[in-house]
Write a protein that binds this DNA or RNA. Structure first.
Lengths: 254, 254
DNA sequence: GAGTGGTCTAGACCACACG
DNA sequence: GTGTGGTCTAGACCACTCA
């Protein structure tokens, strides 16, 4: 007899769990509602806790769940759209953008951005730290690297560090002519300090937006912004926020 | 005696492992080189295999490693920049873009895109499947949803499905005036079929690029493209590919 | 068939939040 | 203190690739 077996690809348990949970989320849970704890859920589905966690992890990655240690697992609201479209030829820090300056210091250029900035090793850069708040929570942390040579007029009157200094650097940038900018988006994981500012654990997935600002034929500044990948949807294009609707990030076809 | 303890926050083992491995990758390994297998590595570091795997998983997420079942773990090349900038007012499928039509069918509008398309439930849409090849590997899979009403002239002469049909739909689109487009990027996980076309396992992290094409005051088409998050860096802006350099996705600060 | 990564288990302990 | 999610262990078996 033909061991037909058709295509009984043994679907992993966690994969099936994901599907079941997703349907349950759509049908039986409201945004913000807390789920049963992991031990209960695992028992209910007859799997080990680790397996259940694998399903929860992916659902969190897809922005459907939010888990917080010591608290529990809650149903996440739809991702917020944050506009990252290139606003004509504007420097960061121009007329009330969504960012709040946090700190600033002057150090040697870090290796990761040295090539981007086209600087010599050892050249000094101002590092401006900013936070982006949206809908009441911080959604992104940014490091803006500005070579000291880009803002030679920076007054020594400003504080040597802190938010005031940051605003000083941003102010000086506005005086430069901006020729253009490049931008790239990729997946990364939050470092220890970014994680703290984004209220996530280290290693949390983030969307890294790298922007290179060109002025006077050279790279005058580089911004590296890390957005919470679980809660954010980056929007581009003229219409910006809320134009594109709900999460289409998973189209199951098992 | 003061139990100073200073700030001995017990850093998780996998986190420390990540750091060690990353440094080893930078120093001792060439791109494409294969690492020792997971059991050996775990033994070498004196941790359980699951812990070692947690570190490898994150390094893969950051694009530093590539793991393939039955083969091994290799050092990944730097991410490729793929240009996703909005080319003026062009429809998909215009003069040799990077996409290869794969298939096409006509079905009722799926729920996930119904609201985006502003269609009634039950309205018929052409679903064009395309693949994007870059540097010899498929980097993205796309579904382009075109309401039948957007391309009324579509000839019945074309094949009812398959690549030829896909090209037919794309051809018809070119005749429409394009008013504008919205775009959004978010993190997702690959469904079973996307995973197959991208040569990844289901659940692999992807960057989902959703584009809404507006023509004649309404949404004439919607594209949902999933890019391999491990190997791709999405680039925008005039200068496109290769303008922005190496992976700055992790700035450790432990 | 041998070796690889992928899945799964049944425990244990830890860090954190909250009452 | 109690309960939550986060980390970790030491196994086991499975699916896949390749010689």
């Amino acid at each position: 007899m033909g061991t037909t077996q058709l295509e009984t690809v043994p679907e992993p348990k966690y994969w099936h769990l994901k599907t079941v949970l997703r349907e349950a989320l759509d049908a039986d849970f409201a945004v913000g509602e807390i789920l049963p704890n992991e031990r209960d859920l695992a028992a209910r589905f007859g799997v080990a806790r680790a397996t259940l966690r694998q399903a929860l992890e992916q659902l969190e990655l897809e922005g459907r769940l939010q888990r917080r240690r010591g608290v529990g697992t809650t149903v996440a609201p739809p991702r917020v759209g944050v506009d990252v479209s290139t606003t004509r030829g504007e420097w960061p820090g121009a007329a009330q953008d969504a960012w709040r300056p946090v700190d600033c210091d002057l150090t040697g250029v870090p290796a990761e951005v040295a090539t981007l900035l086209e600087t010599e090793v050892g050249e000094e850069v101002h590092t401006v730290r900013r936070i982006r708040i949206s809908h009441g929570q911080s959604v992104a942390a940014e490091r803006l690297y500005v070579p000291a040579s880009s803002v030679p007029e920076l007054s020594a009157i400003d504080a040597p560090s802190g938010p005031a200094r940051a605003r000083g650097v941003l102010r000086e940038l506005q005086h430069l002519g901006l020729d253009g900018q490049d931008r790239a988006v990729e997946l990364g994981s939050a470092g220890a300090d970014d994680a703290r500012e984004l209220d996530r654990l280290p290693g949390a997935p983030v969307l890294v937006v790298t922007t290179r600002y060109v002025a006077g034929g050279r790279t005058a500044a580089v911004s590296v912004a890390t957005y919470r990948a679980d809660t954010c949807r980056l929007t581009f294009g003229a219409s910006g926020d809320l134009e594109i609707g709900e999460n289409p990030q998973e189209r199951q076809a098992s």
